[in-house]
Nucleic acid binder design. Structure first.
Length: 327
DNA sequence: CGCGACCTATGAGTACCCAG
DNA sequence: CTGGGTACTCATAGGTCGCG
C-alpha cells in the first residue's frame, strides 16, 4: 500500500500537482489555509490528501489565485503599460498598434528613461476596502450558496398558498390586489378542517424530505474538505457582516465533535427546574459557577463521560480517514 | 508552546425564509 | 402580505487543531 502511495505521490510530483497545492496554499491567507482539509482529518489523512482530494483543493486555490490576479489587473486598469513590462519585452516588436503613441514619444524624448519609476507602481497594494471586497467575493464562491439545494422546511400554509394562488392571480394584478388575495387565502386557510390542514402539512413535509434527499445526494458529490471549506466560508461571511445568519451544510461523514466534561454536566442539568424560564446567558453563568465550585470527586462522573466520548470521537475520526483513504 | 478559532450542549426569544 | 417552521442569538468551559 505504501509503495502505491509513494508511486501516486511521485506521479503528482512529476505532474507538479503537489507543488501547486503548496505554493497556492502558501500564497493564500491564513484563514484559507486553515480550511485546506477538515480538522478531523488533517492529522490522519496525509494519505488521502496526497491523492484525489488535494487536487480538488488545489484547483480551488488556483482559481482563487486567478481571481486575485484578475482583480489586481482590474484595479490597475488605469496604468496599462505597467503590467506589460516583461511580456512585451519577450514579445518584442510584435506588440499591438495601440502603442503607436509610445514610439513617437520615445523618439521625441529618447534620452529619457521613464521605465524605472513605473516599476514601483505595479506593486501598488490593494486598499483595505478592496481587500475586503475581494475576500468577500472569494468566500461567497467557496460557500457554495448557488449550488447548495434548498432544504428549508416549507410550512403547510405556504403549501396552501402555492396551490391556490395561481387560481386567483391574474396577469397585470397590482401589488394591492395581490395583497387582497393573500388576505382572502389566509381567511380560507383558517376555515380549513384539521384533515385538510394535515394534507397540506404532508405536502410540505414531502417537499422538505425531497429537498433533504437532494441536498444529501449533492453533499456526497463534494469532498469533506469542500463541505468544511464551504461552512468555514459561511461563518467567515457572517463575521464580516455579509450574511446575518449561518446555514452550515450538514455532512454525516464528519464525526460529531467530542463533548467536554462541562458539557456533560450542562446536559445533566437539562431538566433542572432551577433554571426553567431563565435566559440562556444567565443559565450558562450559573452552571459555570456551579461547575467551578465542584470538587474533583463531584466532577468525576462527567469526566468519565467525556473520556468515553473522546474514544468515540477518535475512532470515528480514524474510520472517516480510513474511508477516504480507500475511496 | 501559547494563542485564537471553532465546536459542543443548554432554552427562550426572534429574525429569517418559504410560497405567489 | 400571511402563518409557522427553522435556525440563529446570547454566555459558558474545555477539547482540538492550525499557525506563528
Amino acid at each position: 500500500m505504501f509503495s502505491q502511495i509513494a508511486l501516486t505521490t511521485a506521479r503528482q510530483l512529476r505532474a507538479g500537482t503537489t507543488l501547486v497545492v503548496r505554493t497556492a496554499v502558501a500564497a493564500s491567507t491564513s484563514s484559507t489555509t486553515r480550511s485546506a482539509a477538515p480538522s478531523f482529518l488533517r492529522r490522519s489523512s496525509v494519505v488521502f490528501q496526497q491523492r484525489g482530494y488535494a487536487l480538488t483543493r488545489s484547483k480551488k486555490t488556483a482559481a482563487e489565485s486567478d481571481d486575485t490576479a484578475a482583480t489586481v489587473t482590474k484595479t490597475n486598469k488605469t496604468r496599462p503599460a505597467a503590467a506589460k513590462s516583461k511580456k512585451s519585452a519577450a514579445e518584442g516588436a510584435t506588440g499591438a498598434g495601440a502603442r503607436a503613441k509610445t514610439p513617437r514619444a520615445k523618439k521625441e524624448a529618447a534620452p529619457k528613461k521613464p521605465k524605472k519609476p513605473k516599476a514601483p507602481k505595479k506593486k501598488a497594494p490593494l486598499t483595505d476596502e478592496q481587500k475586503k471586497k475581494l475576500r468577500i467575493r472569494l468566500l461567497k464562491q467557496r460557500a457554495l450558496f448557488k449550488e447548495d439545494p434548498k432544504t428549508h422546511r416549507v410550512p403547510a400554509w405556504s403549501a396552501y398558498i402555492s396551490e391556490h394562488m395561481k387560481d386567483v392571480l391574474k396577469e397585470g394584478d397590482d401589488i394591492a390586489t395581490r395583497r387582497g388575495y393573500f388576505k382572502t387565502l389566509a381567511a380560507q386557510w383558517k376555515e380549513l378542517s384539521d384533515a385538510e390542514k394535515a394534507r397540506y402539512q404532508a405536502k410540505a413535509d414531502k417537499a422538505h424530505q425531497d429537498g433533504v434527499a437532494t441536498r444529501a445526494a449533492w453533499v456526497l458529490t463534494k469532498t469533506p474538505m469542500e463541505i468544511e471549506d464551504a461552512n468555514y466560508a459561511r461563518h467567515a461571511l457572517k463575521r464580516l457582516g455579509v450574511t446575518s445568519v449561518v446555514h452550515p451544510i450538514p455532512d454525516d461523514r464528519r464525526p460529531k465533535r467530542l463533548r467536554s466534561a462541562f458539557l456533560f454536566f450542562c446536559m445533566s442539568r437539562q431538566k433542572d427546574d432551577m433554571y426553567a424560564g431563565k435566559p440562556l446567558p444567565e443559565i450558562a453563568k450559573a452552571l459555570a459557577e456551579e461547575w467551578k465550585s465542584m470538587d474533583d470527586a463531584a466532577k468525576q462522573p462527567y469526566v468519565d463521560n467525556a473520556a468515553v466520548d473522546k474514544e468515540r470521537y477518535l475512532s470515528e475520526r480514524a474510520a472517516a480517514a480510513a474511508a477516504h483513504a480507500t475511496a
